[in-house]
Design a protein around this nucleic acid. Sequence first.
DNA 1: CTGAAAGCGCTAACAT
DNA 2: ATGTTAGCGCTTTCAG
Lengths: 333, 333
Amino acid sequence: MSNEHPTIHDVAKLAGVSKSLVSLVMRGAPQVSDARRAAVKKAAAELGYRPNAAAKHLVQGRTFVIGVVVADLHNPFYADMVDSIEQAATRADYRILIGSGFQSPDREAVAVDTFLQLRVDGLILTGSTIPASDIEKAAETVPVVLASRSSTSDAIDSVVVDDPAGAIMAVEHLIQLGHRRIAHIHGGEGSGALARREGYERAMAAAGLGKHVISEPGRHIEQGGMDATRLLLAGRHRPTAIFASNDLAAFGALSVAKDHGLKVPEDLSVIGFDNTSMSRIAAIDLTTIDQRGSDQAAAAVSLLLERLEGRTETRRIVVEPNLVRRSTTAMAR
Amino acid sequence: MSNEHPTIHDVAKLAGVSKSLVSLVMRGAPQVSDARRAAVKKAAAELGYRPNAAAKHLVQGRTFVIGVVVADLHNPFYADMVDSIEQAATRADYRILIGSGFQSPDREAVAVDTFLQLRVDGLILTGSTIPASDIEKAAETVPVVLASRSSTSDAIDSVVVDDPAGAIMAVEHLIQLGHRRIAHIHGGEGSGALARREGYERAMAAAGLGKHVISEPGRHIEQGGMDATRLLLAGRHRPTAIFASNDLAAFGALSVAKDHGLKVPEDLSVIGFDNTSMSRIAAIDLTTIDQRGSDQAAAAVSLLLERLEGRTETRRIVVEPNLVRRSTTAMAR
DNA sequence: CTGAAAGCGCTAACAT
DNA sequence: ATGTTAGCGCTTTCAG
């Protein structure tokens, strides 16, 4: 336990060679004699030497790390995304570092700033909630890809699900099951929330159900879903179905329905949005819109790598959502 | 969108001052005339200048960042911990960076290595699964605190819940409810898993229930909990209660119980371990052992800060668990 | 194959 | 109050 990091110089001294030779060995250069190579490796291991990434970066101008910022660590959807991002990045010999927005734009901005100061080679923002202007500023100095959030600037790459289509899909599913009083729990400023809400309203209007449109804010978190559901169930025209803007809010809705003695799906249908791994399992088994997080993640990494290789035109990828029927939706009665 | 990061030199030139004056201003030194300060700030903003953390680190020998490695991003327990860690670290003017083990010791080792190369000022490992020797090696170069994993080396600080006590608490709760065929879903190599399993066996033996001891592996993930539960329910002596080594595995158990048409808690009681935020809500409402993750997190940061201030003796903190009764356990019948 | 030297962006004495 | 300089740990020419 100490704080003295061995340097390349220490290794050189112990191995009885020059600094540059150590550098050569560490980077796996071929033109080094086996004897020397072994001596250097041994000395390095003995000292617990690890190259200082900062010094290396300073001279190379690259870090080989990609910063991944997630809006909210508690949302399993982002955990799914990060998993896929890590796999794709590793394949391309990049390492990833994770920053969290902790459900707060301010704290997310701190995470972005930290990465910028570290001079990561690229940034992937998943479900970002910070202002577009901040993102554009960041993008002036490093390639930025938005995942699961559409880009407002035409200089920034993005990959998103078709949010309106997903929302319409959800509402039409409910309508087909005979529901008419379909309420929405919206995600406020959350990623994709506005587009989903508009999709909901559009689908309702198209089915002549405009007068049943009602939304409560769920903030894309469980607690928000609970609060919204309480309000909706207390209203005069209790809905028979709820479309939540994301799975987390849908989990909250399920929870409150249970507290109220309502059975799902018999008394109340609930559909979410995300298809988090969590929705499939546990006692939940939530019907939801799959926004194909891992496809989005892989695409985001590809976009970033292309930028790193020199692409200059902006690319946007839109992924088609899928309805995943599970056991929280059923015929209205 | 480019890759040219402005340097302190660029700012100095634009503002018409020297490099050091810019440095002074960036660090908020007081003895700078207002006019120059304003000129520098303006130039910096114009260029979108951000100090290069690597260069700063190189000369200061510190990074003011704490690396936080979590065993598994999907486990909401770790999300809870990271939240608390971030708050405590921010109060002390440290930033945190997050690395994930992605449920794999090898990938966790990569995360640790990345942080070591970055020369983070300290490392907090939550629920770590890498070999103790790797941790000890890391601890030779940087202060390391283990959270939610007990330290095997007496040079490394740690904070853990009293796992055996928690397990005994869980089993005794079930016994008091009249259960006798109490099965366990163990966590294998997972953090705390061994101690919890031993606690289970000890409590069973103490109650004269040694012959009913049976465990299946759940790997501390939902899928594992599902697999284990299927095996347990298929056995000749179907248990009336299950004690899972963590909440995630318990969620899996709940899910399978439902698939089998068993009602919880009427037909089967389930108790978890962690008290993740997830367990409280959703349609789950899991009875569980609270291992007070946020207390552990705050303590871990304190331990780290103390090390950073120079403490040399090792400290271990053990947190007492609490039983949280919710609706997945009931009288045996 | 090996070593010396320059320089990446910054801070921290030290001058002025 | 402001400018100059050395040097953090590393890679990368360039000479031996």
